[in-house]
Design a protein around this nucleic acid. Structure first.
Lengths: 208, 208, 208, 208
DNA sequence: TCCTAAGCGAGACGGTACGTCGTGTCTTCTG
DNA sequence: CAGAAGACACGACGTACCGTCTCGCTTAGGA
């Protein structure tokens, strides 16, 4: 195979992980604006140039930290248990917990930055936003195929907007928590919204 | 009354307006992160100290600019035309247009900053988020009072989260536009979601 | 007259003097190579930008420091006491003391830097080297006019090279001191070298 | 004999020469201050570590380069042709040419550095300054032994200072060239200065 | 009509993070 | 083992903006 021969000292995985961890930790502790390449390097016990060698901006550092986090979780985003409602709720639960506990500030900060950075925006889409969105769509589409749901009245994309939109809205506005209860309520509301015959059938499953 | 006698040169309204306008304009053009007190002052043709004299941070400048903008519009947020669906759509239309055209970047940036600034968060709630939210709730509550809608299955607060959540989600994620079509679709979806007897009645009004 | 109106906060003379003093002091203490804009600013209790605002390089700082020093001395370089030999010796004494005590390292460092910087070279000529050279030439020329000396055998310029060349040679090579004794010996040697009739007349004045 | 057995790959003479040549060339081209270990290694097509393995500083590199140069010339510094004046002139000529063409910038830079580095200063003395100085003294001393010159009025050391001091002075100050004409004038001036009976005898030999 | 006070523009002040570059050390593979 | 390649921790470079501080000049109300 055409693997380029590795020459010179190999990249330090230790330094890489120290930088990513420090970046997420500092961002969550002090906020996105206060996050600094200098601060990251210092907290990671790493030279400033080592950060610049591998990442062009603090956004790139955070993005890779998030991607690593997701990969490390390796979570099955859309398991098929046969119970569409439960699958939706599980997916939302998982997503909410991640956003709530680890990555909230980083994500909001990155999003703000992405307003004027098309490339960052695209990478956020591909790495974080898109997969979650696709997973929810898949789960809902399974419900449609089984005849439990219908996308005629309300397109599935709009339904996905509802779910994740509510999460983001609460993350940034902080007028209400992003917790398990929200996941439950959202699942039911989506069920009701997409019920083919009307909202009555949504009652087959009581709210907690 | 205990009015302090005005002494010395009075504050220049010209400078104040120049600062607020420049702040919004620069923020929308270059992004929140690139917005700078120095840049604002320069673009407004104003000394830097004049900005610092009246606003402690660039956040305060943007916040006042947004408040001024809303006041200047003086728009009736929740007019009662008797047609609940139309009122919802009008409210969303107005809100979307404002966010899309003028204040999107500023709002997202402020929200990101508010993640770690409780005071800013509270002021954003009171000035921007809260009133819109309350207005939508009012319109929906009128529908409930008229018997057109029901808040038994889905609470009105969650419905409001759906509407504005979708807006925010699309503003930051940019996977779909925030336009009139979205307002129409959202209005219908809310109607269907809150219909007392089921989604069938939502069909009284065809999508465009 | 067309003096431009001074606007804004006026330059701080305190900061200016602190920078110049710190530069000379640090250069003499740690050497030219170890001299750093950062170090100068720190030692002067001044922001780094304040140095960069007024001087483009550390060379410019040192040059102005030297010029200030010379101006502050305001010394009459070439006093005319009527005794040519004494005048020569006084001039060399003054020059040697200055170089030995305050400016030696700075001067040598600047000269090294001037090897590749024509502008710096020219300014050193005009500010430091040239005036001393001219002063010595003047004193010797007075001796020629009085008939005590002659420039027929050895041009006065070469004689000046002898005197200051020896100083520089010893400054950089450090094989022998640049002290009062050198000034005395040099004066006598110049006298002998330029004596019109021969070196015998130089004996009118005994060596110390 | 106690020669340590050479083990492993022997030192590459090619690399050594490449480093020394690159150092001298870069120093003369860009100046002493701009000379960099990294730059030397790159220009020599050599790894940085290879430089650090054999030389502690760029000064050491330059010093060895100069020493090599002198050895390669292998020039007889003080040939005895029987004509003292001619010998002086030859010595100065040789010295001036070397300084002018190849090593000027390196020498001045090293001298500046040696202001605060006693060890470097000593090595410069031993390698470059001292031998030339001693050679000139020897030639002059021969003249004294022959009765052509006298060191009673002016010590030979001071005469040597005159010659080399003038060279250095012109090298760093650049107010006049260091050329063959200077060698001729200097030789005559030294002759005159050291003439036992007076300057008249110096006229036995006309200036060019 | 001056006097006093405060706002205004301008811009220098002491700081700090930026992104780049060179330092001297280290760790890999190749010859 | 030497050598090339290059990553590592470190720190100075010169720039930009921070928030504060003086300046000279309005621009008002009160004497």
């Amino acid at each position: 195979m055409a693997e380029t021969a590795a020459r010179g000292r190999p990249r330090s995985e230790t330094a890489r992980r120290a930088v990513l961890d420090a970046a997420l930790r500092l961002c969550q502790r002090d906020g996105y604006q206060a996050l600094t390449i200098k601060g990251i390097a210092h907290a990671a016990g790493v030279g400033r140039q080592t950060v610049y060698r591998w990442w062009p901006t603090k956004e790139a550092v955070l993005l890779e930290a998030l991607r690593d986090l997701v990969h490390r979780q390796g979570a099955r985003l859309a398991p098929d248990t046969g119970d569409t409602l439960a699958d939706v709720r599980t997916l939302l639960d998982t997503t909410f917990r991640l956003a709530r506990e680890l990555t909230g500030h980083a994500l909001v900060g990155l999003m703000a930055q992405a307003q004027h950075d098309g490339q960052l925006s695209a990478r956020l889409q591909g790495t974080v936003i898109g997969p979650r969105r696709a997973a929810l769509r898949d789960v809902l589409a399974r419900g449609v195929r089984r005849g439990e749901l219908s996308d005629e009245e309300v397109p599935l994309d709009l339904a996905a907007d509802f779910a994740f939109g509510t999460m983001w809205y609460r993350l940034i506005s902080q007028h209400a928590p992003v917790d398990d209860d929200l996941a439950a309520r959202l699942s039911l509301a989506l069920w009701r919204l997409l019920s083919p015959g009307g909202p009555h059938q949504a009652e087959r499953c009581a709210a907690p």
